[in-house]
Structure formats: structure tokens, C-alpha cells
């Protein structure tokens, strides 16, 4: 079955991202497909490559990146929510004339239409939030 996930909260503050990662691993282990993971609201903060969690803690962004590499996941960060919160990739940095970017490899920035499309294409949409 094809699943799509919507993540509404950033890492660490809430358990939402942890739950979503565990769910994703279990779904993949059972042979399901993850059509897309869409990061919205503060969920866009999952995509920063600049976070430095303590060494004995999990690195949530890296966990997403690892899953992305192993399973070719489509990790989509909402552009409107990301811009509002200072999450930008290199293209956006150049376009907006900013002096830095912070989106990790493995994630891509796109519009809200990607969430609706995920709802249409996937068999189930599961929302993780606060």
C-alpha cells in the first residue's frame, strides 16, 4: 500500500518526527511504499542540516536523510512554511539574496500542491503533529 505522511512539528520539541520516523521504518519493513513525506508548519525544521544535537541523542535530520538514501524517499519541505521560518536551500538563497542556506541533502523544497497530490496519489495520509 502507498502511504503519505504529513509532519506538522519540528524535531525534539515534540515527538511527532520521532513517531513518523518509527512509523516509516515499520511501513517500509512491511513492504509498503512511502509515496511522500511532507513537512509543514514547524515541521520544516526537520530539514535543517545545521542542527547539532548532543552526541548521545538521535540526529533526527540525519535519520530522515538515511531513510531517504536507503529507500529513495521523497522528503518535501513546504516552501511557504520554510521561508517564513528561515529554512532555505541554495536556489532560494540565490534568488532571495540571502547569505546562507541550511536545507540538508535528501530534502527538496516545493509547494503545498505536493501535499494535496500526496493525498490524491497515496492510499492513506497519516498526519503527525503536536
Amino acid at each position: 500500500m502507498k502511504f503519505a505522511l504529513q509532519i506538522n512539528e519540528g524535531p525534539y520539541q515534540h515527538q511527532a518526527a520521532d513517531s513518523a520516523i518509527q512509523f516509516t521504518k515499520a511501513a517500509l519493513a512491511k513492504g509498503h511504499e512511502i509515496f511522500r513525506v511532507f513537512f509543514y508548519h514547524d515541521g520544516v525544521n526537520n530539514a535543517t542540516r545545521l542542527a547539532i544535537p548532543p552526541q548521545d541523542d538521535r540526529n533526527i535530520t540525519q535519520e530522515w536523510v538515511k531513510l531517504q538514501k536507503e529507500h529513495n524517499l521523497d522528503l518535501v519541505v513546504c516552501i511557504a512554511a520554510a521561508q517564513r521560518r528561515g529554512l532555505i536551500d541554495e536556489d532560494e538563497m540565490n534568488r532571495q539574496g540571502k547569505d546562507a542556506n541550511n536545507i540538508s541533502e535528501g530534502f527538496r523544497i516545493s509547494g503545498l500542491g505536493q501535499l494535496i497530490e500526496a493525498g490524491i496519489e497515496a492510499d492513506r495520509l497519516i498526519v503527525f503533529g503536536a
Partner: peptide, 19 residues
């Protein structure tokens, strides 16, 4: 909180998808 506003933004975009 921002949930109401950002939810409305999804509704407006989603309206283009003929669902």
C-alpha cells in the same frame, strides 16, 4: 498559534486540484 492560518493556506492551494 499559526495552525489556523497555515491550514487556510492549504485549503486555498488545494482548491485548484478539483477534489
Amino acid at each position: 498559534t499559526i495552525y489556523a492560518l497555515e491550514s487556510l493556506e492549504v485549503v486555498l492551494i488545494g482548491a485548484a486540484f478539483d477534489q
